[in-house]
């Protein structure tokens, strides 16, 4: 995972560095400096990571058992559900998507009592909805429910 992040940081800072050459005036100087610095730090980090893994590859095996460095299954499930939630919020509407999202995560994370999960997910949805709309006059996506 560390290597993935290192590559990602190289890509991001490379993009920022490349784009910064196109800005007019002195607007590009600062981003160029910072992205250059990041590429430098990232290289040190890459070096450290390689060294660490070489030096105590055995110890790391042990540590891996203690602290998983790979993304967990829960991370994938939660992030995919959350992305779906945000994506569907606008077309379908807060009042419908939210209880479904809440209930599915609650079940996934080990909510056992069905009654508890259903009551909580619906009640929370309404509490949040009223908190935001009535108190704060904030438009929460309505979607297909035309209230």
């Amino acid at each position: 995972m560390a290597y993935g992040v290192i590559v990602l940081i190289y890509i991001i800072s490379g993009y920022f560095l490349y784009e910064s050459t196109k800005f007019g005036g002195d607007a590009g100087i600062f981003p160029r400096m910072v992205s250059g610095a990041i590429i430098f730090i990232n290289t040190i980090y890459l070096y450290q990571t390689i060294k660490e893994q070489k030096e105590n590859s055995k110890e790391i095996e042990k540590e891996r058992n203690k602290l998983p460095i790979k993304p967990s299954k829960q991370f994938y499930v939660i992030s995919i559900l959350s992305i779906l939630y945000i994506a569907l919020l606008s077309p379908i509407g807060f009042l419908i998507v939210t209880p479904i999202y809440l209930a599915s995560i609650m079940f996934y994370l080990g909510g056992r009592s069905k009654k508890m999960v259903f009551i909580c997910s619906i009640a929370f949805t309404f509490v949040i909805y009223f908190f935001f709309t009535s108190l704060l006059h904030i438009t929460i996506p309505q979607g297909i429910l035309n209230l």
Binding site: C120, A123, V127, F130, F131, S134, L135
Partner: peptide, 20 residues
């Protein structure tokens, strides 16, 4: 926690909806 949250929110909403 649940009850308290409900309680707080309902007070606040009541206060404000009156205004509205």
């Amino acid at each position: 926690f649940f009850l308290m949250l409900m309680f707080i929110v309902s007070i606040v909403i009541a206060g404000c909806s009156e205004e509205a």
